[in-house]
C-alpha cells in the first residue's frame, strides 16, 4: 500500500509540474492575453474564464486528484475511538501483548490496576530511603 501511495504521489507531482509549466509557457504566447468568450450556460459571476487549452486544464485537474488520493492513502491509519473496539484490537495484536514490565503491556489497558505486586519489602525500602537522605545531608 505504501509503495502504491508513493507511486501515485510521484506520478501526481510529475503531471502537476508538467501542467504548471505548460500553463506558464502558454501564458507567454501573444494570443493568451485575449479575453475569453463568455460561457453560454454559467451566469457571469461564476464563469471560470479559463483561457488555457483543454488538455492543460484536464491535466491540472487530473494531477491534483491523483495527489489527493496519494496524500490520503499515504497518511497514517485512523484509530477506532470506541473503547471496546480499541481494546479488542489491542488484545488481539501481537506486539501489544508483549509484557514489557509489571502493569505495562500484555494487551490489557487495565493491566496497571489488575496486576500489582503482592508484598513490598518495606524494611528494605526504608533502609534505601534512609541512605538517600543521609547522602543528601553529606
Amino acid at each position: 500500500m505504501a509503495i502504491a501511495a508513493t507511486t501515485i504521489n510521484i506520478l501526481g507531482i510529475v503531471f502537476l509540474s508538467h501542467a504548471v509549466y505548460s500553463a506558464y509557457e502558454h501564458s507567454l504566447l501573444p494570443s493568451s492575453s485575449l479575453p475569453t468568450p463568455p460561457s453560454s450556460i454559467l451566469p457571469h459571476i461564476i464563469d471560470p474564464k479559463i483561457n488555457l487549452p483543454l488538455d492543460i486544464t484536464l491535466e491540472t485537474l487530473f494531477s491534483v486528484f491523483l495527489l489527493c488520493v496519494g496524500v490520503v492513502l499515504s497518511s497514517p491509519e485512523l484509530k477506532p475511538i470506541q473503547w471496546n473496539v480499541w481494546a479488542g484490537r489491542l488484545e488481539r495484536s501481537k506486539e501489544a501483548r508483549v509484557v514489557k514490565e509489571v502493569g505495562v503491556g500484555g494487551g490489557n489497558p487495565y493491566a496497571v490496576l489488575e496486576e500489582r505486586p503482592g508484598f513490598l519489602d518495606i524494611r528494605g525500602r526504608r533502609k534505601e530511603f534512609a541512605g538517600w537522605v543521609r547522602e543528601g545531608e553529606r
Binding site: 502537476l16 501542467a19 500553463a23 471560470p48 491540472t60 491534483v64 495527489l67 489527493c68 496524500v71
Partner: peptide
Amino acid sequence: LFGVAAGTLG
C-alpha cells in the same frame, strides 16, 4: 494543492 491548481487555471 488546490491553490496550485486554481492559480494555474487562472
